[in-house]
Computed example of a mutant assay.
Amino acid sequence: MSGVIGGALGAWAQTAPAGQDSTPIVVTGTTDKPGEPMSRWKRAEADDVVVYSEGDEGQLRRIATNLEKLHALLDRLYRVRSRTAEPPRIEIVLFSTAKDLRDSGLRNIGADEGPFAKPFVGQRFYDPRPSGAVLAIARADQVIDTDTAKANAADCGDTGAADNDGESDAASDCIGKPLNHPPVSRSWESILYGAYAQHLMLHYVPNAYPRWYFDGIGAIFSTVVFKHDGSIEYGEQPANLTPMLRAYGRLDTRAVITGSYLHAPSKRMDWTPYHAWLLTHFFVMSNLSATDRTQFAQYLNAIDHGLSMAHAAEAFGTMEQLRREVRAYAGRPHEYAKTVKSSATYNPTVTPLSQATADAMLKRLVTHS
């Protein structure tokens, strides 16, 4: 287990939207009055987040507390700006179902992910508004199909997947072989924590970065674990990594590093948060060689200076060595990081909302999206 990520996670991101002010968000709407019909919605307010949910109060309070803990961690890892540039509190809306999220009318405005394979599209909506960003997700675990053509091809490849990276190079032969690729689930909380990490990345780190790295930072913090002693574990391998790589293809390192996957999808790989986790984890949490560290720094520096990903990728030479290293890394145990114990306390304020206030909140969110 690694104790720290080092400077890698705090080194590269894009500039926050211009014109950010530090004025706290004020939720407009009808003031609750005695006798007003109440909604199912509740609001949790903390120092850095305002969270709305139709779920029970205990869950809402726990989520708001975890987000405050994650904020404190990311503040230590990422912050390069002064606290006077602290963004307004983000509003986070937790819808009950994926259908409710789709029907809300919210749409992604900035910090787009992917492009991911179809099962991973539309997991969350994000809008970095100058008055305060908005993030919305559904409180429903995502069920992901792994019974894909790539998974079947990998199974039919006999022993070719010796490196455990999820895909075989051997000739296809499925005669007499039963195939079983059950669906797997991805926690809605993991999507929330990853999206929150990406939100702060946009505000705290002023450099440009490739989109795959933005995806990877979200994936790394999506597996965060909040321990009872106040410590936090992060960077752990996501559950079902191996079946996901089998289902959606081996990481195509060259396509991602050069950016070609953005406009010409790789035939070998369908891009997912799991691929993003693997490549980003390799660069920021593995024991990189001096050569890899130098080449990666040159690559990111070139992107920060406006060069295309394809030109920046020239830092890796032919990329064959990098491809072999990443491929081998996929099949090895992966380190993670853990903070020290903490006695810090968090006490978000939870308020039930009247139907009028809840309706005004939802209307305002959509009106500004």
Rank of each mutant, 00 (worst) to 15 (best):
E45S: 15
A46E: 06
A46M: 06
V49C: 13
S53P: 01
E54T: 13
G55H: 01
G58P: 00
G58W: 06
R62E: 14
R62V: 03
T65Y: 07
L70Q: 08
L73R: 02
L74D: 04
L77Y: 09
L77R: 14
V80R: 15
V80H: 05
R81K: 15
S82R: 15
T84A: 12
A85L: 10
P87L: 12
R89N: 12
I90N: 00
E91Y: 00
L94Y: 04
F95H: 04
T97Q: 12
A98I: 07
D100P: 01
L101K: 00
L101V: 00
G105D: 14
I109S: 04
G110F: 07
E113S: 14
A117N: 04
F120S: 02
V121N: 06
V121R: 08
G122K: 09
G122C: 06
Q123N: 15
R124P: 00
S131Q: 13
G132N: 03
A136M: 11
A138F: 02
A140I: 02
Q142M: 08
Q142G: 03
V143Q: 13
I144G: 02
T146L: 08
T148I: 08
A149N: 11
A149I: 08
A153T: 08
A154N: 11
D155W: 07
G160M: 05
G160S: 05
A161W: 01
A162W: 14
A162I: 12
D165M: 03
G166I: 03
G166V: 03
G166R: 01
E167H: 09
S168Y: 01
S172P: 06
S172T: 15
C174G: 07
P178S: 04
L179P: 01
L179A: 10
H181M: 10
P182N: 06
R186H: 10
R186L: 10
